[in-house]
């Protein structure tokens, strides 16, 4: 991995494995939702994760954030934050340590703002619930700080007295962004934060996330299936397929020179306004992760599949500087 000088990783994920283990009527079932994922997120960058539904994006970030609930289990590997160097994953640290870093160092922006904001409490109280204990000070002082912070996402301080249902979807999502950033955390996890918003509002919210991130110099792990959003927003991009990372690199590099056949398809299949070229869908369907195909999980749908792909898992190899790919056709002779 080509670490740029002076930009140490805030998050190092190595060979992370997270499985859903269920046991119904004596039948054990294991869904390997995240299987051997490794990447770095550096300081002051937005790292994007792209992939289709059920490719393991959300499971991956839940594992990284330590939000593990049965049947989800972290089976192996590590996800180490620079602000929590003594533990190799948030989920393995004791609860009092996690409480200390949560929101202060690690915060989240979720998809459904209605699920974050308590519908029965004014926005002011949500701010107090989330952030007061980390910031401290008097009640007035804290409220003034919350009001000042809301202005950064271009919301009027009167929003503090409103209930969530009185705000539009875009305003609510801006409130959750303000909530997630008021403590100036080192690391923010954003899971599909704009998917439920209309395109015009989405553009606004993305610009806001970008400017706050640059101002605070924090790192964001940004998840969405929308390749257009990744192209516009992220610095580096990882592509997930069926629980594994198949390619990652600088975002302009991934879009300009995609190497993995799946990435190439994802980018080539997007229609563009002003372009009438025929675009094709990909044959087949994403695999069932309870019974994933052996070898490379993409091989049943891959136009470049070779006999080797059905038996051996391709290793993630730095094919070009800073650009890693897991594919036998791109990297001959590299097995995991």
């Amino acid at each position: 991995m080509s670490a740029a000088p002076g930009r140490a990783p805030v998050l190092q994920v190595r060979d992370l494995q997270a499985h859903f283990r269920t046991r119904y009527f004596g039948v054990d079932r294991e869904v390997r939702a995240v299987d051997g994922v490794g990447f770095d997120v550096r300081r002051n960058e937005i790292y994007g994760l792209a992939g289709e539904s059920s490719s393991g994006k959300t499971t991956l970030v839940k594992t990284i954030a330590g939000l593990l609930k049965p049947p989800l289990e972290m089976v192996g590997g590590s996800a180490r934050f620079s602000f929590l160097p003594e533990w190799d994953a948030v989920g393995r640290a004791p609860p009092e340590v996690v409480r200390r870093i949560r929101w202060r160092h690690l915060s989240y922006i979720m998809q459904g703002s209605m699920n974050v904001l308590n519908p029965l409490r004014r926005i002011r109280h949500s701010f107090r619930d989330f952030a007061w204990r980390h910031i401290g000070g008097g009640k007035r002082e804290f409220d003034a700080r919350a009001a000042a912070h809301l202005e950064r996402v271009r919301l009027d301080p009167s929003v503090l007295s409103a209930y969530p249902h009185e705000l539009s979807g875009g305003m609510r999502q801006r409130v959750t962004i303000a909530l997630a950033t008021i403590c100036k955390p080192d690391f923010i996890i954003a899971d599909e934060p704009t998917t439920a918003l209309d395109v015009v509002v989405q553009k606004d919210v993305l610009g806001m996330i970008r400017s706050i991130q640059r101002e605070m110099e924090s790192s964001i792990l940004f998840i969405t299936h929308d390749m257009g959003v990744h192209a516009a927003l992220t610095d580096r991009l990882g592509i997930m397929y069926a629980g594994r990372l198949v390619e990652d690199g600088e975002t302009p590099e991934i879009f300009g020179r995609p190497l993995h056949p799946y990435t190439r398809h994802l980018i080539a299949s997007l229609p563009r306004i002003g372009d009438v070229e025929q675009r094709e869908g990909l044959e087949g369907t994403p695999p069932n992760l309870a019974m994933p195909p052996p070898g490379c999980r993409f091989h049943p749908r891959c136009p470049l599949a070779m006999p080797l792909c059905a038996t051996t898992v391709p290793a993630m190899v730095e094919t070009l500087p800073g650009h890693r790919v897991a594919c036998h056709a791109v990297n001959p002779g590299a097995a995991a």
Binding site: S2, A4, P5, G6, R7, N44, V199, V200, Q202, K203, L206, G207, R210, S211, Q213, R214, E217, D226, M227, G228, V229, A231, A232, L233, D235, G249, E250, T251, P252, E253, F255, I267, L270, R272, I273, P321, G322, H323
Partner: peptide
């Protein structure tokens, strides 16, 4: 104008360039 496509690459990056060293690659 709000549609984001792969061709809009860097729409937000350009407006908010890195303060530190330029992005490598």
């Amino acid at each position: 104008d709000a549609v984001l496509t792969p061709d809009s690459a860097g729409a937000f990056r350009a407006r908010h360039p890195l303060k530190a060293a330029a992005t490598p690659g």
